[in-house]
Design a protein around this nucleic acid. Sequence first.
DNA 1: ACCCTGTGGGGA
DNA 2: CCCCACAGGGTC
Length: 852
Amino acid sequence: MYTIAKVIVDVPSRETDRPFDYLIPESMRDWIEVGSRVAVPFGRRTVQGFVISLEHESSLDRSRMKKIQELLDHLPPLPPDLVELAEWMSREYACSTISSLQAMIPSALKGKAERYISYAEPDERPEGESEGSVEDGTGTEGLFSLSLLQPAEESEIIEYVKAAGPVTFTHLDARYPGRGAMIKGLMKRGVLTESQAIKDKLRIKTVKTVSAAVAGEEAEEALASFTAQARRQREVLAFLLEVQIPIGMQELLTTLGVTAGTVKKLAEKGFAVIEDVEVFRDPYKDRRFKPTAPLTLTPEQQVAFDHIAGRLDSHEHGVFLLHGVTGSGKTEVYLQAIQRCISEGRQAIVLVPEISLTPQMVERFKGRFGDKVAVLHSRLSGGERYDEWRKIREGKVEVAVGARSAVFAPFPNLGLIVMDEEHETSYKQEETPKYHARNVSVRRAAQHDAVVILGSATPSLESYHAARSQASDDFAPVLLEMKMRPAGSELPVVRIVDMREELKDGNRSMFSRDLHQGIVARMERGEQTVLFLNRRGFSTFVMCRTCGYVAGCPECDISLTYHQKSNNLRCHYCGYSEPAPSVCPECGSEHIRYFGTGTQRVEGELAKLFPGIRVIRMDVDTTVEKGSHEKLLNAFREKKADVLLGTQMVAKGLDFPDVTLVGVIAADSSLNFPDFRAAEKTFQLLTQVAGRAGRHHLPGEVFVQSYTPDHYSIIHASRHDYLSFVRDELKHRRTLGYPPYCRLILVTMTHENLQILVRMAENFVSDLRGKAQQKGWFGGLDRFTSDAFDILGPIASPIPRIKNRYRFQCMVKYRGAMDAVQLVRDVSNLTLEHLKDASLQISIDVDPQMLM
DNA sequence: ACCCTGTGGGGA
DNA sequence: CCCCACAGGGTC
C-alpha cells in the first residue's frame, strides 16, 4: 500500500516545475493512482495537482510533508501512459511538466481554488475564543462597538454559517450586505475560519428523469386511489406505467401538458421516483448520419491496406507514410484500417487539421462508425468538449476524430493513429507546450505497440526524407504510394501564366487575359470558378498615399489591421485598437487607403471587370461567425454565385461538381515569404488548389499567375510532380543546412529594455557556444556526414517589439543524437538565474514551423 | 504564481 | 522612530 504521492502542482513557474511529496490519507489509499487529480496545500494556498508516481518512502521527513487534501475524481483523468508521455514531452519540448499534463485534459478540469468560510468549534480555535467574547478591545476598536450594538446579527451570521456549512465569501456578503467588517472580526477571533477547495469550471450535466415506483397490483391500487381533483396525477402515473422505462422530466411535461408540481406531488406520494441522470452534451444530437458501407478497394488501395493491416494484426509498432495524389482515396484506406483496428478490440485516433474538420469530414466517420465516434474540435463549447472527452475516457467510444490535441485521447488500448494531411503546419502548437502532433503520435503509438498512418498528397519533407533514407533517429516510416485517381477522373491541366508578359503587353489588371476569358466563358456556360489568393497570414493595413504613413501599434512594431465591420484598427498581437482615420494623422491628406488582404481588392476588381458577376468571398473577415464557413460553401454549391474567392480556406477538401476553372491570382506571394519552407508551402498550396478543379465529369482547367513562372515549385506543382519537387527542394535544404538535414531550436528572448536584452542575448549565445564546445559538439553543418551543432544569431526577431517588449532570437541547428534541447534549456535557466531579473523571458521552440 | 520575511529609505 | 516599498526566497 503506497503512502506517499509525488505530485506536480499547477503553479506555472520554473522553481515549482518538479514533483512535491505528499502523504496519502488512509481514506484515499484505495483510490489514488498515477494520473489522479488532487487538491493539495501548497504554501498557504490550496492548488490543483497531478499524481505522477506513488512511493513507500520519501527522501523527505514525514513530519515535513503535508497531506493530500482532496481527491478530485474517482476515475483519474489521465491514464499512466499519458503521464509518462507528458514527462517525455516536457523533456522533448523544454516545457514544464504541468503544461504538458494540462494540454492532455479538457479545460473544464482545470480547477481553481475557491475560498470558503466555515464555523470553527471552540475547541478547534487557536486561543479558545468564545462566540460572545468582545471583552478584549485589541485592535479594531470601532468595529467591536458595532458588534456590541448588534450582537443579535452577529449570532445570526454564526448560526447561519454553522447550519449552511462552508460558504463562499461572496455568498455571505450577498446575504449580509455591509457586514464585511463584522465577518472579518469573527474571523480574527477564530469563530469563523477560512478554508480553500478546488472547484471545477464545469459540472457534469444531469437531467431529471421520472419513472413509476409501483407495479402490478400496487399500481392498480394506486391508480384507483386518486381523487377526482388529482386526475392529472393519475394521468401521469398511467403514462409512466405504460412506458415502463424512465422518461426525461422535460419530455414528460411537454407530452402530457402537465406542470412539474404535479409530478413532484406524485413522487411525494411514493408512486414515482425523480432521479438525476448524467447526460453527455452532444453537439451532433440532432443530426442523422447516413450509414456507409466499406467500398471495394482499388489495387493500389488494397496494397496499402494490406501493409497496414498486417502490422495491426501483429500488434507491432510501425509508422506508414501514405503518399496518395489528391482524390486517390486515402480516406477509404483510413476507414478500413480503423475498422480492422476496432474489430480487434483496440481503439483509434484520427487527427485532421483544424481547418478541414468540417461537417462533411465528420460525416464520413460518423457515417461509417456511428455513435462509436467522439469528435473533438475548437468550435465545441467547453461543456461539449468535456463530454466528448468523457465518452473516450469512460470507454463509451472507440474512435476519436479531432484536431492536434486529440492525439491525447485517453484510450486504454490504442491501436492506430491516423494523421491526415500530415504536412499541415497546424499540427505544431504555437503556444506552450510547443509540441508537434506528428512526433507525439509516433511516441504515443510506440508506447502502445500501435500503428501510425501519416497521409498526404504532398508529404512534409521531414517525413518523406525519413521514409526514403530510413536513417532517421526518430522514425523511419514505411512509404506507401497511391498514384491513381479512381477511374473516371483525371488530374486537371495546369497552365502557368507569365504576368511579366501581361504587363509588357499593357495589361495592368490583376487578371491575365487568359484568366479573364476563362471566367467570362464559365459565366456564359453556367459553370463555376474558384479564385485563390495565397497570401499567407494578415492583413489589411492602412497607408497614406501622400506621405507614406502606415498606421502602426504604439506598443508593438507591427502595422495595425483594418477591420471593416467595426471600422477600427486593431493590433494582432496585443489587442490594442483605435478608430480608423479618415485623414492622415501625419500630413492631413485624405488619400489614406486600406490595402486589403487582397480578397476585398480582388472582389472590387471583379465587380468592375465583370458586370453582374456574383462573388462569394471567404476569408478571416467573412467567416468569424460560427457556421458561416458552411453557410458560404452551401450557397456556392447551390450555385448562388459564379465565383468563390478566398484564401487558404478554399484550397482544402472542397468538392463541387460544376467548378471547372481554378485561378491562382499570384502564386509568388507565398513564395516570397521569408521562411525556408516558402517553396514547400507554395508547392503544397498550388497542388491542393489544382486538385479542386474537374473532380467530376466536366474537365477542369487551372491558371496559375506568376511573376516568377520559372520557379521549380510552380513548375513542378503545375505538372503534379511531387518527386521532382522533392528532389530540387532537398538539394536546396542540403546546401543551406536546413531540415530535414538538421533540426532547429528557435530561442526567443524578450525584455522591456533593449540594451539589457541585447547583452543577455549575446551572453546566452556565447554561453551556449562554450558549453557545446566543451562537450565536443561543435562542428560545421556544411559537410552533412556527421554530427553537427551550430548557432545563428542573436538577431532582432522579425517582429522586433510586441507589447512594449523587445525581442531577440537565435537559432540552434544540430544533427545527431546529442541532447541539444536539454543543453539549451540548461543554459536558458542559468541565464535567468544569473540575471535575477523577472523581466527577462526566454521561449524555446523545438522544431519551429513559424520562424517569427 | 503567490505570499511571507527582511532590509532600507524616507518622512514626522 | 515608525511605516511602507521592494527584493529575495520558499512552496512537499
